[in-house]
Amino acid sequence: MLELRLVQGSLLKKVLDAIKELVKDANFDCSTTGFSLQAMDSSHVALVSLLLRAEGFEHYRCDRNLSMGMNLDNMAKMLKCSGNDDIITIKADDGSDSVTFMFESPTQDKISDFEMKLMDIDSEHLGIPEAEYHAIIRMPSAEFAKICRDLASIGDTVVISVSKEGVKFSTRGDIGAANVVLRQNTTVDKPEEATIIEMNEPVSLTFALRYMNSFTKATPLSNIVTISLSSELPVVVEYKIAEMGYIRFYLAPKIEE
């Protein structure tokens, strides 16, 4: 038996909006730790890792570990039927081939349930090693989204370079080239407006902008994004989900042949 009650149901809608462009079908794993997902895009270039901790739910019952295969477009269709202020409860019986999403309006005057068929998905779970990153950039998520969007209008790839000068996002395309340099800035009114660049050693990596732009669909989940770079590893683009967990996107770099 599984029963997860999320008072801020809109969070789940935002989570789906953040990942459904990247991943079509995925297993949601439920354990005493929380509600989680790990999935790659179909070409195995990017990986998404989601965790919503059990403590973040108003009620969290998961009698045994359960993996539920869902089509994310269909899940998003169902969640779209909830009101923005609704409480969402996810329910499933052991061995059932369906999951139920129950939506309650804040005043309890409207209660709906939507049942969705589950699917069998062969999923591969990957071990993500703990790593030391050469550079970690913490910046406003809206600013990162704008940079990715702007650069994608010029080129297909972005070179992210971190040096003593700051962090540089560069692209080049048929019509020209663009460079955006951000310097550390902590003299801001609100902490979420700060740009903090932590550099252990200089690093420069190239990534496909199409994926970066897809990751920025998570912007409504957090005012801050953290980008961790290492020359030997995929970049990590992390959006924290307030008091609940995170979405982390991993993207393999482009490699010079």
Binding site: L126, I128, P234, A252
Partner: peptide
């Protein structure tokens, strides 16, 4: 042109 890397060459199946 640079070649796109693959997640599976960095993270192993468990």
């Amino acid at each position: 042109d640079a070649k796109q890397g693959n997640i599976l060459s960095f993270f192993k199946r468990v």
